[in-house]
Every structure is written in structure tokens, then in C-alpha cells.
């Protein structure tokens, strides 16, 4: 059973906030889903290697590829605030 506290903890790692009036319902649905996936625990996976990549080809390396470098206008066009060619955010308290 997943608790509201756990949900809040996971939310803080994921940089999300579940509103107080939604937390009960969210936790309930979240718990449904998480208990649903617990079924895989019954599978015997001893001596089974994990599959990270589904086809059998090796990864490749890049060499002398075409540059995709953007203009500064393109780099900054979708952000809220800029200054002197930088992205700008309010100073953040560490």
C-alpha cells in the first residue's frame, strides 16, 4: 500500500506537486497501478540478462558528421527571458 507521504516524496523528486485536495484520489489511482505491476515479481528471472537494446546490432560512433549548430536567435527563441545572449532566470536560492 502506497501512502500519501510516499506519493509526496516521489512527487518532490519528480518536481511535481500534487494538490492537497487531489492527493487522496491520486494516491488511490497510483496505488492501483503500482499493485497491478507487482505481478512481475512472480516471474523467475534467475540467470536472465536484462534487455537494454532490442535488436542485435552494436551501437555506432560518429565521426566527421554534419554540424547542426543553431543560430543564437534559434537557440533562444523559445525561452521566456533572455539577456546579453544568455537564458535568464531569477536568481535562485540554493
Amino acid at each position: 500500500m502506497i501512502t500519501k507521504d510516499e506519493v509526496n516524496h516521489i512527487a518532490s523528486i519528480a518536481k511535481l506537486k500534487i494538490k492537497d485536495d487531489e492527493i487522496s484520489l491520486f494516491t488511490e489511482k497510483f496505488d492501483q497501478v503500482m499493485s497491478f505491476v507487482q505481478k512481475i515479481k512472480e516471474v523467475d528471472t534467475e540467470n536472465v540478462e536484462p534487455t537494454y537494446k532490442i535488436n542485435d546490432e552494436d551501437g555506432f560512433l560518429k565521426e566527421n558528421g554534419e554540424s547542426q549548430t543553431l543560430t543564437r536567435e534559434e537557440v533562444l527563441r523559445n525561452t521566456v527571458d533572455t539577456q546579453y545572449g544568455y537564458f535568464k532566470i531569477l536568481k535562485v536560492v540554493e
Binding site: 549548430t69 543553431l70 543564437r72 537557440v75 546579453y84 545572449g85 544568455y86
Partner: peptide
């Protein structure tokens, strides 16, 4: 120059 060696 700031933010000029940048790509997607």
C-alpha cells in the same frame, strides 16, 4: 560567443 556552439 555566448550560446553559439549549441544545437538541438
Amino acid at each position: 560567443e555566448v550560446n553559439t556552439h549549441v544545437c538541438p
